[in-house]
């Protein structure tokens, strides 16, 4: 019985979500269920609401959720503050990670992990550094980066690797990767994809948002959804990404018109 319940609720469940920026509706009755253990890709042309989905789920104050719900393992996250959502197990890799001068990567990630510790308890420093170094090695990040300020003066590839490092350290239940491939050359893309793949497993669900099929060659999704004008117009397996690449986004527009 318990196993059955777990299976039912171990999902990131987005139900009829409507999101506006100012007065402008962006996501329209958007629904999607991502079970733990699966990787779902969301593709679509620019301006159709991909990043809005990521930011609204993460709780960015500029994105107003007008109706609908988002449940993480059966629990609605919409009333939670962004930091609470994160501590509950939601992770978003930013398309444009912020630079934070003077705050080192080591201190930043430590603060994030300490926020997950029971009241009054602190991380064990040697164990923390051991784990941090392991993950940095995996992501081919120079260990010297621990004492560099978060994203300050990083190249595009370094920023994205740093996002994946944070993801690896925070061990989320569900991860949303917002155009993690943008601005990466192929080598950097491979490193980032390897990092994501090493974290794949039964304990994490992932939503990979991308404009290009290229990333999905390296992070092979279980499902692909095509987003247009704030809603999913077509879903399929990994081959949908290839089909989309071939036919271009005009095809998506036609799909949307047919659907409407």
């Amino acid at each position: 019985m318990i196993a059955f319940l777990d299976k039912m609720t171990a999902t990131l469940d987005i139900k009829n979500l409507n999101v506006s920026i100012g007065d402008k509706p962006i996501l329209k009755d958007f629904s999607l269920t991502v079970p733990k253990g699966e990787v779902h890709a969301i593709m679509g042309p620019n301006g159709t609401g991909k990043s809005t989905l990521a930011k609204a789920l993460a709780g960015h104050p500029d994105y107003e959720i007008t109706s609908g719900d988002a449940l993480m393992d059966g629990q609605s996250i919409l009333e939670m503050e962004p930091d609470e959502r994160s501590r509950e197990g939601l992770f978003m890799a930013f398309q444009y990670p912020m630079e934070i001068p003077g705050v080192t990567i080591a201190n930043f990630i430590r603060a994030a992990l300490n926020a997950r510790q029971p009241e009054g308890e602190e991380l064990n420093a040697p164990a923390y550094y051991k784990s941090l170094y392991e993950k940095m090695d995996m992501l081919k990040i120079d260990r010297k980066f621990t004492s560099r300020s978060v994203n300050d003066g990083f190249s595009g590839g370094e920023k994205k690797r740093c996002e994946i490092l944070q993801m690896a350290m925070l061990d989320p239940k569900y991860a949303i990767l917002d155009e993690t491939d943008s601005g990466l050359d192929i080598d950097a893309l491979k490193v980032v994809a390897d990092g994501v793949n090493s974290l794949r497993g039964d304990n994490m669900g992932a939503l990979v948002i991308t404009h290009y099929q290229r990333l999905l060659e390296y992070i092979v999704p279980d499902h692909v959804h095509v987003l247009f004008d704030g809603r999913i117009v077509k879903s399929g397996d990994k081959n949908l990404a290839l089909e989309l690449e071939e036919k271009g986004y005009d095809w998506v527009k036609q799909l949307a018109e047919t659907a409407a």
Binding site: A58, G59, H60, P61, E81, P82, D83, E84, S86, R87, F91, M92, F94, P97, M98, I100, P101, G102, V103, N107, F108, I109, A111, A112, A115, R116, S149, Q166, L170
Partner: peptide, 25 residues
Amino acid sequence: EIFYMLARGIPKEKAQELIVYGFFE
């Protein structure tokens, strides 16, 4: 900047503190 830190689970007060330390670093 605050949102980025919140999105990592760091509470707002702590996020501000880290940014101020960073500023003084």
